[in-house]
Design a protein around this nucleic acid. Structure first.
Lengths: 334, 334
DNA sequence: CTGAAAGCGCTAACAG
DNA sequence: CTGTTAGCGCTTTCAG
């Protein structure tokens, strides 16, 4: 099939106006259902729109009205289900309100985040959604200067630039440690991924250590893997950790992907869970509920975070921090 | 913290021009690095840009130049990692080329896809990316009329509207059946999710049955679950299937999420794999490589699909279909 | 209830 | 190499 792809002449509002025998502003009013016009006018306009196959140009509309309905997301990763969940939640709300979601991926790199944020701002979005509170000065400066709404997602441990929606990672870490201590575990290890980049995982880890200390315990050993979290790294990490510290009775993982890897390692090696080794994760992924033993973890409201964040933007709400909390899932692996 | 959020006065290109003591078009040329200008002019412009904190307005630029760098994605789902993988692949290429990705989620609903596509078109994107070939007449009509590039993703079994990037789902289904037959399985069942909505899964299934027939075999039984694919549905589906047909020696799943559920069911029930029951999936998710027994499946190039699709758009390539193929992973579950 | 006219901020000829 | 001048397609006063 060969098709011509030079920009084909598109129908404009002016042509609709002419075809309907009314003024341009009338067409505009009818289409946006704003201002007043007679039923008869309305019908004539809609007929012309239909007949000509008119598609309004939102680029032009945005420029003229100086108010965009684009919402920009700069997410650190799309490699696990966490941010897709947030996007999915947000998109349901945005779509209902004729907003459009725009995104880019920073790979957990703060400088890339700055560059992408700057690029996003050129589209004059109504709001920019970013992950967490840790940003370069440049990102913060640009965001502030832009005058658009800012929502920081999935964290509430810090000072919001404008709005924030999420939960406390530090508290999640603390609660995880408290749970393990209550269960009687004492030789506790940690398997995590790059904490400098994923600062929320870092906060969970420090909350975890904090609560251990409060319970007169300390972390027995830890294994930090370079790079992103993954099931594979979790499995590898646990293997390496146990090679050094065979006597651990529980391991806290930086998230469920990592924890599943650890779980698989135990299954493969015949390490019985939780009697020989307990496993605890973070996120509450669906898959963790269906493993032979449900994963002990903390469930986070990711889809809800997206929804609430989007709703705040749509409503043009005042600056605020919304703590959605989380839920500890006892599971069967700890 | 209280901040004012009324639209703050933004710096415009005209102000930069004035501050730099040059004409507007000169600033425009320098900023886009297009056309000619002296080094001295360039420096003065950049200094003014820096001093005023100028952020170009791409909305205005797009309107003036009649050529947008928005790329629209209408994806059926963000609930598993498949489409996030595609988006991630595409976004790397798009970001390198100053394009912006825009998305919405159709929930595998063709009518929602039509509505979302129509809404997208109002932003005058350079291209629209949709999943597969099955669309309503309305979607096709609008897409065609828009004159923008169209890329159909993750399938090559059909006639492309313009461009398509993916692989043959039908061939994947056939190859899966051939593999199971070659391995000697004969009492083969199927566990799948809603095939009317996920037409690519439907094509795999029909390819699978086709190859069974070619090998003088037939499907022994099937269990189709309503709703989306999930690990939970996979586990449930296998349980129900085995309740009816305990004598199956292999089960083909609609994708890896479903297959993992089946795998977990077997682990939980002490059904030994693959001697008692073989399991075969589709997608080649990373997690399937790390389970105690690696999952037998077909690996699809999802990230690559996104990259190639984006590159075709960036290059404004002629209409074409790119078949990226797939790879059968023998694994250890079949 | 409706139309005319003035932009929104930028790019793209077109002269110089 | 650079400035001037028209728009891009729409929204928004402001009169009628």
């Amino acid at each position: 099939m060969t098709v011509e792809f030079k920009h084909q002449t598109t129908v404009t509002l002016a042509e609709v106006a002419e075809a309907a025998g009314v003024g341009e502003s009338t067409v505009s009013r009818v289409l946006r259902n704003h201002g007043s016009f007679s039923d008869k006018t309305r019908e004539r306009v809609m007929a012309a729109v239909e007949r000509l196959g008119y598609v309004p140009n939102r680029i032009a509309g945005t420029l003229a009205s100086n108010g965009s309905r684009l919402v920009a997301f700069v997410v650190p990763s799309l490699s696990n289900i966490v941010f897709p969940d947030v996007l999915r939640g947000a998109s349901t709300i945005l779509e209902e309100n004729r907003y459009q979601a725009v995104f880019s991926v920073s790979d957990y790199d703060p400088h890339k985040e700055e560059a992408l944020t700057a690029a996003m701002l050129a589209w004059r979005p109504a709001a920019v959604m970013v992950a967490g509170y840790e940003h370069t000065d440049g990102t913060i400066k640009r965001l502030r200067a832009s005058g658009c709404r800012i929502v920081e997602l999935l964290d509430v441990d810090g000072d919001a630039l404008d709005m924030a929606v999420g939960f406390s990672n530090r508290a999640a870490g603390r609660q995880s440690a408290a749970f393990l201590l209550k269960r009687g575990y004492r030789r506790i290890g940690y398997v995590g991924h790059d904490l400098n980049r994923d600062t929320r995982a870092g906060k969970r880890f420090s909350g975890f250590c904090e609560a251990l200390a409060a319970g007169d315990a300390t972390l027995a050993d830890r294994e930090i893997l370079a790079g992103a979290s993954s099931v594979e790294n979790g499995r590898l990490g646990l293997e390496q950790l146990l090679a050094r510290s065979a006597d651990l009775d529980a391991v806290y993982f930086s998230n469920d992907d990592m924890a599943l890897g650890g779980y698989f390692h135990c299954l493969a090696r015949g390490i019985s869970i939780p009697s020989q080794l307990a496993i605890f994760g973070y996120n509450g992924l669906d898959i963790g509920r269906v493993t032979p033993q449900p994963l002990s973890t903390i469930r986070t409201p990711r889809v809800e975070t997206g929804k609430v964040a989007a709703q705040l933007v749509v409503n043009n709400s005042p600056s605020q921090v919304v703590d959605l909390g989380f839920e500890l899932i006892e599971g069967a692996t700890a």
